[in-house]
């Protein structure tokens, strides 16, 4: 709605400018956002100044031939501004408001969880903004750093292009939180990526027949990098006997999955989790 009003306003003034002759206006070529500036006009007597820009549309009475102050509050948004001065005729001029020094870095990192040892698995995008929320499009150097408790996974500088800089990196070898920083001078934005164990590797079980049935248990379930697989991961135990089969989907707790199988006959117990298969146990019949 606001944009529509500004557009209508601009249309009316451009029409006025088109049909009228006018005074001279001198405007600065560029202005920094949030900084007061002046424009000068020629002529004498009273006139009306219209200021149109991103997020502003104002009308003020001015004295022609004197310098006119444009308030800092009216120049907070970067972009192109249009000044129209009318008395018996209208004149217009344009100037550019540029963003100022970065005051904030918006930093997006994806994904929030990643299995270890994955190439190009983590990406981050840093976008600097000034104190007025303007995108800083001037090229800047952003330093990216990703580190875990054990290792530094990434240390890289990247120039912003059109106000954006980014990185892409492989995940590390150790499960756990990875701190990812984007620094721009004194500004730092921090995100955390959780590195989780990859697929189980070398799945092994042990078990024995007890009074309550066959108790089977995995050895600590680790991935191929030696990380304990996340608790809650399902391990499927299967006991195959003569004509029957029993299965239990047991979650890993404290690195180990355990199950109880009721089978009086001799059975072969096998184990699987995800794409990993483990060893087999041959358990004799109940005595």
């Amino acid at each position: 709605m606001k944009l529509l009003l500004i557009s209508a306003f601009a249309f009316v003034f451009l029409a006025l400018v088109a049909v009228c002759g006018a005074q001279e206006i001198r405007v600065p070529a560029t202005v920094s956002a949030g900084v007061e500036t002046t424009i000068s006009t020629s002529g004498s007597g009273e006139g009306t100044l219209y200021l149109l820009g991103p997020g502003v549309a104002s009308k003020n009475q001015i004295s022609l031939g004197q310098e006119v102050r444009l308030r800092a509050d009216d120049l907070k948004h970067s972009g192109e501004y249009l000044v129209v001065v009318c008395s018996d005729s209208c004149r217009s001029a344009k100037f550019q408001v540029n963003s100022v020094q970065p005051a904030r870095v918006v930093f997006l990192v994806h994904p929030s969880r990643v299995p270890v040892g994955q190439p190009d698995a983590v990406s981050g995008v840093a976008v600097p903004f000034d104190e007025y929320g303007n995108l800083v499009v001037a090229p800047l150097t952003v330093n990216f750093r990703a580190s875990s408790a054990k290792e530094t996974l990434l240390q890289r500088s990247a120039r912003t292009q059109g106000g954006v800089s980014w990185f892409r990196a492989a995940s590390g070898k150790a499960a756990g939180p990875v701190q990812v920083d984007a620094s721009l001078d004194a500004l730092t934005a921090r995100r955390v990526v959780q590195q989780v164990a990859s697929e189980p590797c070398n799945l092994r079980i042990k078990g024995q027949r007890t009074a309550k049935g066959i108790i089977v248990e995995t050895e600590p379930v680790k991935d191929c990098s030696g990380n304990l697989v996340s608790d809650g991961t399902i391990v499927t135990f299967s006991a195959t006997g003569p004509g029957e089969r029993s299965t239990i989907d047991a979650p890993i707790k404290g690195g180990v999955a355990q199950a109880r199988i009721i089978a009086p006959e001799p059975v072969v117990v096998s184990v699987a989790s995800g794409v990993a298969m483990g060893n087999e146990l041959h358990i004799g019949a109940k005595p």
């Binding site: 608790d231 809650g232 004509g243 029957e244 089969r245 029993s246 299965t247 239990i248 989907d249 047991a250 979650p251 707790k253 199950a259 109880r260 199988i261 009721i262 089978a263």
Partner: peptide, 12 residues
């Protein structure tokens, strides 16, 4: 929750 664990015995 990871519980309860329910085994499926003697399937045939």
């Amino acid at each position: 929750s990871a519980d309860p664990v329910i085994g499926v015995m003697n399937q045939k």
